[in-house]
Amino acid sequence: MIGIVNYGAGNIFSLTAALERQNIAYGMVNTEADLEKYSHIIIPGVGHAGAAMKKLEQTGLVNAIKALKKPVLGICVGMQLITQHSEEGNANLLNIIPLNTKLFDKELGIKIPHMGWNTVEFKNNLLFKDVPVDTQFYFVHSYFIEYNPTFDIAAVNYGNKFSAAIQKDNFYGVQFHPEKSGEAGERLLKNFSNLSS
């Protein structure tokens, strides 16, 4: 059963709806004790990374999340939270994966936010099991996670190459929105729920 960290950063209606369509059971994580109830944890998030980090800190869950040994999936800003630092609000984040979250460079001649469906080059990783090659996922963000071959499990090109998905041990993050990425996104959520804890 999936526990969704309920820290007030953005709307989770679409995420819970996607889980329901996949018949994946879920509940909310409000306290440290709640983290024990679930086999898998999702950290959702939209909006401002610095503001989201402050909200997460207010829940008092930071240390408990960092200590988790079960599969954890950060989505969008939730993914950025597991990195070290974001240029958005010059914020220090959870630092579970030592990567930086950076602002897209306007000088690259790209529209910001990066909005829409983009092809993802993913590695052989259980999170992308049975996802067809060259599948596109739905992105909407102005900040990105720097590419680093050690932690990258899926890369995407927009202005420059950056990470669409990262992993370190039991911690996973996806920049795109699986709950909005059609069947492929639903497959990915299913794959996450099937990861052995």
Partner: peptide, 8 residues
């Protein structure tokens, strides 16, 4: 709509 739809 949100319950049924898997696109934005």
């Amino acid at each position: 709509v949100a319950k049924q739809l898997n696109i934005p």
